[in-house]
Design a protein around this nucleic acid. Structure first.
Lengths: 183, 183
DNA sequence: AGTTTGGTTTAGAAAATTCTGAACGCAGTT
DNA sequence: AACTGCGTTCAGAATTTTCTAAACCAAACT
């Protein structure tokens, strides 16, 4: 764990030598950390998950500075994290009158976040994998012809890669169904 | 990239100063690397994916040394990797007469590997998350009573965590269905 | 025009992860 | 009983990932 789990309303010294108050209760920061680890399981960074966790349990939209301070993150991380969450449709930004700051709040439907991730992350990867497999198949044929790859070995490779391509195609057709399921 | 992508049938100097031949064609080691990155997306290490990729395109079962040499991995990594793949039912081990070595081969049904991962990795995590959320809810109530958390804020937190618990429960019931889908 | 305030970018620091060499244990062999 | 060959373990090295500080840009205000 990079940041020690701070006690509720703890006071900590930041890198400028000033003391500051983080007004998160223990259980709220625990929740943020839980989401941090969950995010990692989805290939996101912990801080992104923590930010979503913080906003998810916040009654009011929060500014970038509030996010950074509450989670003991740099403003840079908070900025990058919120933008990434925005691109995943997991949070939205708004503004108040006479206040130039951005205020962030969580979208409360995690299913839609998941769905968005499926279509924006998983689907393109699948397509990419498919293309690479096709390309591989061609180059393998060339290797067979040049004698680098023996004919029986080529047969095995070809067959198995072909099977894999078929499977990814199947999965591609199932994806929208699964998305609907999750929703 | 940790290991430079070796040209087919290249000769490389290993750490003992000996020269050795890696008899993987370029496209086969590319396939292994592709699976290495795919494995990472599933929370496994690259080497585990590479090993599976190597075995998946191998006509014959391979020994630990052959795996290590082909992928330019240490024997230690090969050992750990194969055992992990075995626990995921992704590979199986066999032995030959008059040969004490283990020989490894891929199971050719990636769907079953996925299914296994769902039940052995995803399901327990879900259960764990569920328990932690329940615990959190209790501790939050305590925080409300001690005045650390204001009553309106508690209401928001309670409501949203409860929603999340409901969602994870739903997902738990869908999981077997999705598993069947993938299969 | 200069200053302040808020968000973004980026080089490199810090931390976490992954891999390796060397040592070990165990079987079968000499 | 020493030796050899194989798989495993584990401390710490190498690498990758994640985060931060500092510089920067842009808009609003003086």
């Amino acid at each position: 764990m990079r940041h020690a789990n701070p006690p509720a309303r703890s006071v900590a010294k930041n890198s400028h030598g000033f003391y500051r108050v983080k007004n998160l209760t223990k259980s709220r920061s625990e929740f943020a950390e839980l989401l941090g680890r969950t995010a990692q399981a989805f290939g996101l960074t912990p801080s992104v998950g923590q930010i979503y966790g913080l906003l998810y349990l916040s009654a009011e939209p929060l500014s970038l500075d509030e996010i950074a301070e509450s989670l003991d993150l740099s403003k840079a991380s908070a900025s990058i994290g919120t933008r990434q969450l925005e691109s995943l449709h997991a949070v939205q930004v708004s503004s108040k009158n006479d206040d130039r700051r951005d205020y962030w709040e969580a979208r409360l439907e995690p299913q839609e976040v998941l769905q968005k991730m499926m279509s924006t992350v998983l689907a393109p990867r699948l397509a990419n994998a498919h293309d690479r497999l096709e390309g591989l198949l061609e180059r393998m044929e060339a290797e067979k012809n040049s004698g680098e790859l023996s004919s029986p070995e080529f047969t095995v490779c070809q067959q198995r890669i072909q099977q894999l391509i078929t499977k990814t195609n199947q999965f591609k057709t199932w994806l929208p169904l699964i998305e609907r399921f999750v929703k």
